[in-house]
Design a protein around this nucleic acid. Structure first.
Lengths: 123, 123
DNA sequence: CTGTATCCAATTCGATACTG
DNA sequence: CAGTATCGAATTGGATACAG
């Protein structure tokens, strides 16, 4: 698939407008916490508490709402064991893993180039 | 480079914390308008007015600040011809093109799967 | 342990008007 | 044409407390 932005927008003029599904998915998937949560899960299943610790600086509120969105999107699966105390874990679905195949190279690029890009700049 | 999130964070614990360059670059590059502006420029040089028209729904304010950030990051180059009226164009730098090689597959994935993900949902 | 509810601060963002 | 300035509305996000 050739991916030309102009071509996409020319053929389907509503693509990436505020009402378009593409915009919604883009917002979910490319959001700060969305990226980090998905990336954390790319290594395998994780429990709520583990996610909370691993994703740097995420609040409970944001973790909850990010996970809810990603589960609704079918990118993450939630598994709850009916024990006391509760045991809940999250893992990528097939769709989520497919997405992360495209996302991880991008993340790798950012890690490689971030210092260079930001060096010698205030905040 | 193997890109494991847990591995990255384990080796460099400050990676993706709020103060880390990776977080800043991630925010620039994965932001709603950042993605769309970069994608539009992936097809080639564009003038201010063209970008304004092509990127769906972007305001002048957001276009200005997004472009300023991307130019500062060295991902986009601004070329101003000293004519009256002014003629200013923007294009990806080599670094920006390198980034887009990783970004476009992701964008393509979103376009392909967005409808399926959002189908039958309110909003 | 895994969340939800609430409140409040900070930030983002769009609309509009204006300038070189 | 290519922006900047300003303002208010809306959203985001964090801290805290609490519930199942």
């Amino acid at each position: 698939m050739s991916v030309s932005f102009a071509q996409i927008v020319a053929e389907k003029p509503m693509t990436f407008t505020a009402e378009c599904p593409t915009r919604a998915v883009l917002d979910h998937v490319m959001s700060r916490w969305g990226v980090l949560v998905l990336s954390a899960l790319a290594d395998g299943e994780l429990r709520w508490g583990a996610l909370r610790r691993i994703v740097p600086g995420i609040s409970e509120k944001m973790l909850a709402s990010t996970l809810r969105t990603l589960v609704e999107d079918g990118l993450v699966e939630r598994t709850a064991l009916p024990t006391v105390p509760p045991h809940v874990s999250y893992e990528l679905t097939d769709l989520g893993r497919d997405l992360m195949e495209r996302m991880l190279p991008l993340l790798g690029w950012v890690v490689e180039h971030a210092s260079g890009i930001m060096s010698g700049r205030p905040r």
